[in-house]
Simulated scan of single mutants.
Amino acid sequence: MYPQYFNCLLTILFMIFVSGPRQTKCTRTFTIVNSCKETVWPGITPGESFNGSGFALKSGQSAVFTAPDGWSGRIWGRTGCKFDNSNGTCQTGNCGTSLKCTGPGDPPATIAEFTLGNLDFYDVSLVDGFNLQMTVTPIKGKGNCSVVGCDGDMRQSCPSELAFKVDGKTVACKSACEAFNTDEYCCRGMYGNPVTCHATNYSRSFKQLCPAAYSYAFDDPTSIFTCASAEYIVTFCASRNQTVCSYHNNNLVCSGSSSVNFSIILWCVTMVALALIFKAPSNLKV
């Protein structure tokens, strides 16, 4: 093997093994990915660090943001939106008439929730219903750092009494609380604690399709997760076992892998290719 090949391979291996988490203690990187076939309009509250809390994300697009340590908020996807000069409405997840959300989205909506600190807490919630498949994938983190979310499409199996329809088409699935507005389904009043508020047939159907998501208000033991020093990839319309990636600061990072400096790899591959072309062995016969 040529010495330059060996050095290049050593460089790549070095980058793979030493490129651990390098972000500062005070920030977290969030990548929001749209794997759906149509445009999604993410909503974020509070969203000062996320392009002002609202934007359009076309199919296949992604956006990278940095949130401060201590940030506690929610991310969801709005669908069926029509905006003109940043004003308009959405079929689901609506947060008023502005592209930038100043408050929570209207149910039904699938919601990713985060509280960042020395130990991050995160989950995907169906307590406010379902409108899109959504997964949260921690990368480069320490601890359990499970992939969570709802990758089943509740709209296809939504009970008729929970169906949220637009022009006769089910575009979302309401929670039982929103549909019936009773203390039992909303876990309030005498049902406002984990002793008296239990899973219902409706929340069980949510849980069966999406076991790694909150199905009702006191579904904590199987639905809230923790991770330290992670970056997060929030993906619409992806499965939990699907590889997802983020590219920023010349680093390509994918779930289940370490970060690699893409420019270094590209340089090494180019050098190896040139060596093969211009320095072929002299005994090569043609």
Rank of each mutant, 00 (worst) to 15 (best):
S282R: 15
N87R: 02
M134W: 12
M154F: 06
S146M: 01
F55D: 07
N201V: 05
D183V: 04
F278E: 02
E113F: 02
S259Y: 00
K165Y: 04
K25S: 06
F30T: 10
S19P: 14
A228Y: 00
G96Q: 08
V269K: 09
G47Y: 13
I16S: 12
E184S: 15
S229G: 08
I44H: 02
D183G: 12
F236P: 15
T115F: 12
C177R: 11
F225D: 05
C173L: 06
N249D: 13
R204Q: 07
P42N: 03
N94D: 07
A228E: 05
I139Q: 08
A56M: 08
P21R: 09
H198E: 05
A172Q: 09
A230M: 03
A109F: 14
F14T: 13
V147D: 09
C237M: 04
V253G: 01
A275Y: 12
N201T: 11
V127G: 05
K279S: 13
S98D: 00
C158Q: 08
F206H: 14
G149I: 09
S205C: 00
L13Q: 03
F65D: 15
K207F: 00
V195S: 08
P104A: 03
Y5G: 06
G43D: 09
F6R: 00
P42H: 00
S282M: 14
K82T: 11
S160L: 06
H248L: 06
C210A: 06
I16P: 09
S146W: 03
V124I: 15
K174Q: 14
Y202A: 12
G88P: 06
C95R: 00
S282E: 12
Q208W: 00
C237E: 10
E38I: 01
H248R: 10
D151E: 08
V136F: 11
E184W: 09
A56K: 13
K37M: 05
I16M: 13
D69F: 15
R22D: 08
A212S: 13
Y202G: 01
N7A: 10
